[in-house]
Write a protein that binds this DNA or RNA. Structure first.
Length: 849
RNA sequence: GGGCGAGUGGCGAAACGGCAGACGCGCCAGCCUUAGGAGCUGGUACCGGAAACGGUGUGCGGGUUCGAGUCCCGCCUCGCCCACCA
């Protein structure tokens, strides 16, 4: 470095240093990972890629800069670190912006990406830009299409007509995109309606059981719990009831129900079908037709409003038909009610009001019989016939069956198994497992997404687009005149095509894919973004997957993080990848809220832009401040209060490093060793502190505890400040402490560390080499060891005294010493100690009575 | 209603069952300065006391323990997720 450059700042001037080093690092290609390099252990560090909204806000910094610190930390440990980045660039905001500004979503998106690339660079993050992935690029989304075709071939993708959640603004939604009691759209907040549509699905349910298995994954417990609950496995039985003949229909239809309590089968006093159930029209007696149809219309329309009511009173109507209970031959009335969901189980239930709260409430409201068939141990045989005041749900080992024919008197658990066996034998049912998880509804009636690569031919039906004709490209010019509706529908040049099978005229599918498809496999693509033969190079994938550490928000618990696991398993089964789990270790950082405590959003006007802070303090200060705020998984409302403390800290590091002999005027003690301490003792103190800090800070980086990591660096710099200008400043111990401080700072505040490192090298007349390519220092355990320790002394658990003793003083000696201390004697009030507890060498507790 | 998580100074927060409040902000005082919204030093949980020191303190009530912010039981409050899943 030239003298001119070196003198560019005598003060710490971040705005001069940071662009300089960012340029140097890029020039040297310091962070372009060589994926083929096997000489070092691999470390795949992934952070959730951003949506190109246009501007990087403080939340992006909160996610990315600690992740970058982790990357630098691992790199200094000699690992081959891969930290890629990309843009999740399909989706509605682009389309909405396009409609508003009458431009193409592509132009809007690409402009935003260009802008955000520069902003990301200003953080000093070590992303490997060579591997960048942009999902709206045909070179990316063609592989969405390719994978989709493989799924289609394997039966993992299918088209089906079914009632879907429909948002008037955003079209169809996946189930997890519908939120709240009032069932509103996760994006625009509009109430969601039900519509019957032909839609594309992915068979996520095929992997339901495997998705419940988290073996080997280091994921936060809450996320695993959420996914487990979302998949919602329940074991029970499917039971076949048969409809009874009557004057309007011949009967004999199978009415299948799912129950988790086959042991209560004798207590089924009525049946309930969902209003959408296929048998409803047939089973509705002519005399009840008007009432039933009115109910169906009412529930279809008013569902959301009724569900808003906290009482949630049960509603329903009798169909006029009956079904025969397979175990006791009883005729049970068939009702319809909207508390039975069409999409779960078989869409119909056997109602056992005595042992289910919802059925109980329904029976009470409509005066239906309630028959107890399970009794707890506290209920005597004589009491069994007493009417229940509430449903008896408990399912303990002591429960026994009553009023259940031959099964009466059996423990309920045995009855459960016996009834299932009996049903199976008679062909009237079977053991069955149900999941709350549904198949993934992936079609969207939108322009700005990956076209689903199929065509519809009058002759050949649904025909996949052959792989060699991929990608099916989005038309570049689209008409947004009729805003809201999918412009692909009216784009004749897109829609009209020929059938790949017969060559005749055909129409393209105009639905596009849910953007969560893009993010379900993007980390694979990072590994071989240019590969023209496969979504991912299997050899590279075998070496680099799974991702070692993934960082991102917990709001993706049951969407992105579950879809990604599904994709990985499906891709493995279809031979595209080896690994069955995408992310070995997951960390959910918290969310930075606006200053008002609300989620940051443009519409609320509480979005925090880091640019002003970066200009004033520099990127390093902002990075460190975000890490220092609190535990990374916590987040919280944004406030820049306190950033001055970080700024002061870095200035202090600057001064102790570059001006060790300076003396501070305001302090008469400055430049003088503490009373009673000679140079040797002071050096020992400094060395001990430096190595102990190194040990702690190393653990804190590895454990992602950045807030306390920064605090410990502050303590060390405060200690150095104390010794600045004294006779030990510039000694070997001093220089070592400075060197360790700068090295420990390097991952978190990379620019200032690099600048100081280069100046230290220059001062020694050495050639600069990057601090980030330097090995992480090793703790000198002999230096970190202490010769003395301070022992707090308690009497009956109350702190009364402290003594400083040699570290290796035997317990008996320590005890004698402590018991002679005046404060301890006073606290004992003449009583004799019962025992003295030496708590792991940390503290002494004297117990008296 | 169910599940998960969290309640500690004026504020952000620390604390393998072992000295509660590290570190930082803010505030107070002193120093240094032509000046300072710069820098340095000290103080700062609450009550009493000039101080030494004493007492009280981690949402509330119990319990286990030599010892509980931490573990167990029951409540209260807040946040997030799921909400009629048979």
């Amino acid at each position: 470095m030239s003298a001119e450059e070196r003198s560019r700042t005598d003060r710490y001037d971040a705005t001069a240093i940071e662009p300089y080093w960012q340029g140097r690092w890029a020039e040297l290609g310091l962070y372009d990972t060589d994926l083929a390099d096997e000489s070092k252990p691999k470390y795949y560090l992934l952070t959730m890629y951003p949506y190109p909204s246009g501007n990087l806000h403080i939340g992006h910094w909160y996610i990315m800069t600690p992740t970058d610190a982790l990357a630098r930390f691992h790199r200094m440990h000699g690992e081959n670190v891969f930290l890629p980045i990309g843009f999740d660039s399909f989706g509605l905001p682009a389309e909405n912006a396009a409609i508003k500004n009458k431009i193409n979503p592509r132009d809007w998106t690409l402009k935003n990406i260009a802008n955000m690339r520069g902003q990301v660079r200003s953080m000093g993050a070590t992303f490997d830009w060579k591997s960048e992935v942009v999902t709206c690029d045909p070179a990316y989304y063609r592989w969405n299409q390719w994978i989709f075709l493989k799924f289609l071939e394997a039966g993992l993708a299918y088209r089906q007509s079914s009632p879907v959640d429909w948002c008037p603004n955003d079209g169809t939604l996946a189930r997890e995109q519908v939120e709240g009691t009032d069932r509103h759209c996760w994006r625009c907040g509009t109430r969601v309606e039900k519509r019957l549509l032909d839609q594309w699905y992915l068979r996520t349910t095929k992997y339901a059981d495997e998705l419940l298995d988290f073996t080997g994954l280091e994921w936060p417990e809450p996320i695993k719990t959420m996914q487990t609950n979302w998949i919602g496995r329940s074991e029970g039985a499917e039971v076949v009831f048969t409809t009874a003949p009557d004057d309007h229909q011949p009967g004999g239809d199978e009415l299948r129900v799912f129950t988790t309590r086959p042991d209560t089968l004798y207590g089924a006093t009525f049946m309930v079908m969902s209003p959408e159930h296929a048998l409803v029209p047939k089973l509705t007696h002519p005399s009840r037709k008007a009432e039933v149809e009115a109910y169906i219309t009412a529930t279809g329309k008013a569902t959301e409003i009724e569900r808003m009511s906290t009482e949630r009173e049960k509603t329903g109507v009798f169909t006029g038909s009956y079904a025969i209970n397979p175990v006791n031959g009883e005729r049970t009335p068939i009702w319809i009610a909207d508390y039975v969901l069409a999409g779960y189980g078989t869409g119909a239930i056997m109602a056992v009001p005595a042992h289910d709260e919802r059925d109980f409430a329904f029976a009470q409201k409509f005066g239906l019989p309630i028959a107890r068939v399970i009794a707890g141990p506290e209920v005597s045989d004589a009491e069994v016939e007493t009417p229940l005041e509430a449903a008896y749900i408990a399912h303990g080992d002591a429960d026994r069956m009553v009023n259940s024919g031959l099964h009466s008197g059996k423990p309920a658990k045995k009855g459960f198994a016996d009834i299932v066996a009996q049903l199976e034998k008679e062909g009237r049912g079977k053991a069955s497992v149900n999941y709350r998880l549904r198949d993934w509804l992936m079609s969207r009636q939108r322009y700005w997404g990956t076209p689903i690569p199929v065509v519809y031919c009058d002759k050949d039906g649904i025909v996949p687009v052959p792989a060699d004709q991929l990608p099916v490209r989005l038309p570049e010019t689209v008409d947004y005149a009729g805003s809201g509706s999918n412009p692909l529908n009216t784009d004749e040049s897109f829609v009209n095509t020929t059938c790949p099978k017969c060559g005749g005229p055909a129409r393209r599918e105009t639905d596009t894919m849910d953007t969560f498809i893009d993010s379900s496999w993007y980390w694979f693509r990072y590994l071989s973004p240019q590969d023209a033969t496969a979504p991912v190079d299997r050899a590279i994938e075998a070496r680099w997957c799974p991702v070692d550490q993934y960082t991102g928000g917990a709001e993706h618990a049951v969407m992105h993080l579950l879809y990604s696991r599904f994709f990985t398993k499906a891709m493995a089964d279809l031979g595209m990848a080896h690994e069955r789990e995408p992310f070995k270790r997951l960390f959910n950082q918290g969310q930075i809220l606006g200053a008002d405590g609300e989620r940051m959003s443009k519409s609320r006007g509480n979005v925090q832009d880091p640019d002003e802070l970066v200009q004033r303090y520099g990127a390093d200060t902002v990075r460190l401040f975000l890490m220092f705020m609190g535990p990374w998984d916590q987040g919280g409302p944004w406030s820049p209060t306190g950033i001055g403390g970080i700024s002061r800290f870095l200035n202090r590091v600057w001064h102790v490093t570059l001006d060790p002999h300076g003396v501070d005027n305001g302090d008469p003690e400055s430049g003088v060793l503490p009373a009673g301490q000679d140079a040797a003792a002071a050096e020992k103190v400094l060395r001990t502190a430096a190595h102990r800090t190194l040990r702690t800070v190393s653990e804190e980086y590895a454990g992602l505890r950045f807030n306390t990591m920064v605090a410990h660096l502050m303590e060390l710099s405060n200690l150095l400040q104390r010794y600045r200008g004294t006779e030990i400043a510039g000694s070997a111990a001093w220089d070592e402490a400075i060197r360790l401080l700068v090295l420990m700072l390097a991952p978190a505040a990379p620019h200032i560390a690099e600048e100081l490192w280069s100046r230290l090298a220059a001062a020694r007349g050495e050639v600069w080499s990057s601090i980030h390519a330097t090995g992480w220092p090793a703790v000198d355990e002999s230096a970190a060891a202490q010769e003395e320790r301070e022992v707090p002394v308690q009497v009956n658990g109350k702190l009364r005294d402290r003594v400083t003793v040699p570290i290796d003083m035997p317990e008996a000696e320590l005890e004698a010493l402590v018991l002679a201390r005046p404060k301890v004697v006073a606290a004992l009030e003449g009583k004799t100690p019962l025992k003295v507890i030496h708590a792991g060498g940390k503290l002494l507790n004297i117990v008296v009575r």
